[in-house]
Write a protein that binds this DNA or RNA. Structure first.
Lengths: 109, 109
DNA sequence: CAATATACATTAGTAAATTAGGTATTAGGC
DNA sequence: GCCTAATACCTAATTTACTAATGTATATTG
């Protein structure tokens, strides 16, 4: 596995929740947004994205609503819940601390 | 899995190489040092530590030497190689970029 | 009308990590 | 002297997260 892929591991949940905190989005949109935002650092394959969305919904951190567009495309929009926001707060806090520690270690070298 | 454990994933290789860049160390020592350094953020179970050390050695990033202590304990010291330092440079660079991107995303929320 | 993009999803396989053991010696408390 | 904890190495079985490879269906563009 590439260094970049290895590094990205474990960040999926937080990045997903952060995006959905800004506004409800549908899967395909999220996938595009992830790629755009992080210059490829957060690119998420569909085989990971959809199962993760389903898991987060099952955990009560997201809800979903089907919507039809004017041109007959069906989209499943995901909305973050109160529990989701709570989880995001935790995640962001933990990431902050972790990154601080890692920075210390990198600098010490 | 706890948030902390999830976050830590993928950082093992870089943290290991960073420690060994400072000085040669043996497995048990590394394990202690990891726990001490990161307030638990970098705690590495033995089932991960030893296989990883062996893998890195196989990849030519580390070498190892057995040593006997005065009180008859055998220790296997690991030393980083030139290739290991190269890899570490890459890893640290990638982590820096990744953390920058992640910080942007967190701040944007 | 063919190729590409949009939009959902699943399955099979891989890699990294945890859990749970195992061996052997030394140090410290009772 | 004996028991527990610490030191020091290690492996095997399982779980989890991820990638790679597909599959279905419709819309858009050249």
């Amino acid at each position: 596995m590439s260094i970049r892929n290895q590094i990205r591991k474990g960040s999926t949940e937080m990045v997903l929740l952060t995006l959905l905190q800004q506004r409800p989005m549908y899967g395909y949109e999220i996938s595009q947004e992830m790629t755009r935002l992080g210059d490829g650092y957060f690119e998420m394959k569909e085989g990971l994205l959809y199962p993760t969305l389903h898991r987060l919904q099952k955990e009560g951190l997201l809800t979903s609503q089907w919507q039809e567009t004017e041109n007959d495309r069906r989209r499943k929009y995901y909305t973050i819940t109160a529990a989701g926001r709570e989880r995001l707060k935790e995640q962001a806090q933990e990431w902050q601390t972790f990154m601080g520690k890692l920075q210390e270690i990198i600098n010490s070298a």
